[in-house]
Computed example of a mutant assay.
Amino acid sequence: MAHVVADKAKILARVNRIKGQLEAFSKAVDSGQDCYQVLQLLASCRGAMNGLMSEVVENHIREHIVEAENKKAASESGEDLIEIMRSFLK
């Protein structure tokens, strides 16, 4: 996944922000914060993860399907992506 390496700094920055959001969620639970605030933090964590997944999937589609060397390679990458998305969406 050369696109992951090319966007490494950008992806790692997003991962670090997600770590911060998860830490805030953990602290909110530990300190007994109001249920609404805890749920809001959890929703923001989920949104951040979904955004990261969306970006990585988009880059994967562009590099391995749209710009594939041939139709067979594109098809194989598409099938791999379908399998990954099924597990992600469970």
Rank of each mutant, 00 (worst) to 15 (best):
M1N: 08
M1Q: 08
M1R: 10
V5I: 11
A6Y: 07
K8S: 08
A9K: 12
L12K: 14
A13E: 03
A13N: 07
A13V: 10
R14H: 13
Q21P: 02
L22C: 10
L22P: 04
S26G: 02
K27F: 10
V29A: 12
D30R: 05
Q33N: 10
C35W: 11
C35K: 11
Y36M: 10
Y36I: 06
Y36F: 13
V38R: 03
V38L: 00
L39S: 06
L39C: 09
L41R: 05
R46G: 00
R46I: 09
A48G: 15
A48W: 06
M49C: 14
N50P: 00
N50K: 06
N50R: 05
L52A: 06
M53Y: 14
E55C: 09
V57T: 13
R62K: 15
I65D: 00
E69P: 15
E69H: 14
N70M: 09
N70Y: 08
K71W: 06
A74V: 00
S75A: 15
E76P: 11
E76R: 04
G78S: 04
D80N: 15
L81E: 06
I82F: 15
E83C: 14
I84F: 15
M85F: 13
R86Q: 10
S87F: 15
S87A: 15
F88G: 09
L89H: 13
K90N: 12
K90D: 13
